[in-house]
Write a protein that binds this DNA or RNA. Structure first.
Lengths: 208, 208, 208, 208
DNA sequence: CATGAATGAGACTTCATTCAT
DNA sequence: TATGAATGAAGTCTCATTCAT
């Protein structure tokens, strides 16, 4: 960080810049926006952005880390609770959907600019991203050991499928391909877990 | 297109540029690479790229359309065949995985630069992308009508989850998070369908 | 000056800033360093630098004038003393070398940033710099009148050669091209005068 | 170099940029001028400067090397000729003065921006600069071995004094402190050698 | 006196695109 | 078709200076 803010007011300014960056990144995309757009959106002078951040990159890195750390902490906490595997996945799915509900622009930025950006920020945060996948895989592994989940589906693979399904639903909202709104968010939480855990097939068919 | 190639040699040149672009986009990312990088990779003069393409954007657009049209055609064809819904999804999953197996760089480019790029190419190709989702959803809808698939999971939603699961597996390969290789590709085809159609839960648990 | 310091403590602060500036200018060069570097080096707040100085330029100007005035005073004094011309030049050479010995960083700054900076500070201080040359030339002129020095070498020219020889020796030390240390400093004082006054040629050859 | 020019016309353009840079650097100083000033002076588009050079720095580096290599070659050649030591130094002094006469702006740039720039370009070209000093010192060393020059003055030291005397004369011209013109140039060539080799003192005085 | 946040002009550099040959 | 020189708009980052407290 270019300069650690010392006063309360300074911290607020830094926050304002980060929040403005979310809006601008979400609206225009990281590459298409200019640092001056962020400054304008935040209502601060151009130079102040560089007073608090070393570069445009660092702003996105900061945004990603802030949110991803919450996610990692959540998954970690969920895993320690006495829940059934499916409920653990349900809690994670709910958290991610709620993250989107709470701040869709931030999640858009994270998904569009980081978790799929194999040549730029995704690479930078590979370790942190992988950590989330591994923790989910761990939940699956435990479920397989206790017999709740099928053993023939590799845990790491299952984790990717699960996470991918959720992220794609968010992508659907982001692109305007799926309907948004309270009820849809709640429904999505259930459905994604029902899909990945219960499967799309009806019971009789599955019982084939 | 800047200039439709007439001669055989010209068509080859254009192809060489497209193929070079795939490698360069995959290696450096669309934004990070320069048009001169593509020319160098293709072994042609800088200006020639502009003889065959109007812009850097058009190169990516062309690459995407070429591949996506094949995908759309495949899904369309699959849907007309007398297959069980799950086998249709299996065929689609196989096609996508094979696409990656056949040309991982191209698929990397499509996933990283287009299907998740909500502010740039993703927006440009939104119609085509949606078309694929809708066709998959249509398969699900029919399956639900005939009772093979559960009706409580919205077809469009199911389509997104299905597609997202596959794309995430490809993303795992792209990022080096999942192991690649013939056997893994084959296994992935089965597992993704087993996960989404059959569910992660073991029968007894599901039967609960 | 931005604000003439009144209290003893204030004077010390201003001195600390000047001393810090010498170190920073010597280490990074005037252009490459930032005002904040000076503040950091001095251990004072950024803004305080501007409390004592109007600009970054003024700091260097102050440093130069402080030292150059001592030099001018010294030359002036030397000239009034009842010394032989060569001894006068010897005294000047000694003063300059001692200046370097006493504060090599300051002399580095003066030579590198001022006396050769034809487009910036050198131009600003042209009058003062010329004054030194003229006083040396005056010594030579008198020596020529009294017959101690050859008349065929223009006094002004001789002054430049003399001063240039010394400054180049200092440059050699600054660049690490000539060995430093007490004995070298002492030796340099003698040699530069011996070179310029006595000449490099051995007597027989000169007597040719 | 950013791009090696291939055609005759391209080489001319590159030359035009270098020549323009000399004028601009000499007039405003390296730091004070902008790349656009160089482009304007050369009558080319801004971007073309970067087509031929990687950076503003590289332009100066190129200018320095071009000239300095000629100097090194000249000194080397002079040293191989069957001349008396003093005549060798005379040849070198003449070459430097002629360099100034031929292209005073280039010499100004080299002296002001490189040979005394201990923190930037001087450091970059330290090796090449030292090489010149060493070759001159070598001439002195040989002269001392054969008895032409006094042995009590270290050769390296003498080389610095000699070179410094010349450079200071050029500096005098650059600053407008010494009169320029054909006759002065010719006179300077002789005087600098007479000063450094013969000494300022008149014979009787030297015969002390 | 002292602090460091705030400002914004300015410069380098990049690179997509055009053009003359 | 083919080449690569030429163009210039645009964006990031720097940093001297100002200002509110």
């Amino acid at each position: 960080m270019a300069s650690a803010p010392r006063t309360k007011a300074a911290i607020d300014k830094q926050r304002a810049i980060l929040d403005a960056a979310v809006r601008v990144f979400a609206r225009q995309g990281f590459h298409a926006c200019r640092v001056s757009d962020i400054a304008d959106e935040a209502g601060v002078a151009y130079g102040l952005v560089y007073h608090y951040f070393d570069s445009k990159d660092e702003i996105l890195n900061t945004l990603f880390r802030e949110r991803w750390n919450v996610m990692l902490a959540t998954i970690k906490e969920v895993d320690t609770e006495p829940l059934k595997p499916r409920d653990k996945l349900q809690a994670i799915a709910s958290f991610i959907v709620d993250s989107y509900r709470h701040d869709p622009e931030l999640m858009k930025v994270i998904i569009v600019e980081v978790t799929r950006a194999a040549n730029s920020f995704g690479q930078t945060h590979l370790g942190e991203i992988r950590e989330a996948y591994l923790m989910i895989a761990e939940i699956v592994t435990k479920a397989q050991r206790e017999g709740t989940f099928k053993r023939e589906i590799d845990a790491e693979f299952a984790a990717m499928a699960f996470y991918g399904a959720i992220e794609q639903v968010l992508t659907g909202w982001i692109f305007g391909l799926l309907p948004e709104g309270e009820e849809h968010f709640e429904r999505a939480k259930k459905l994604v877990v029902e899909t990945v855990c219960g499967g799309l097939q009806s019971e009789p068919a599955a019982a084939k």
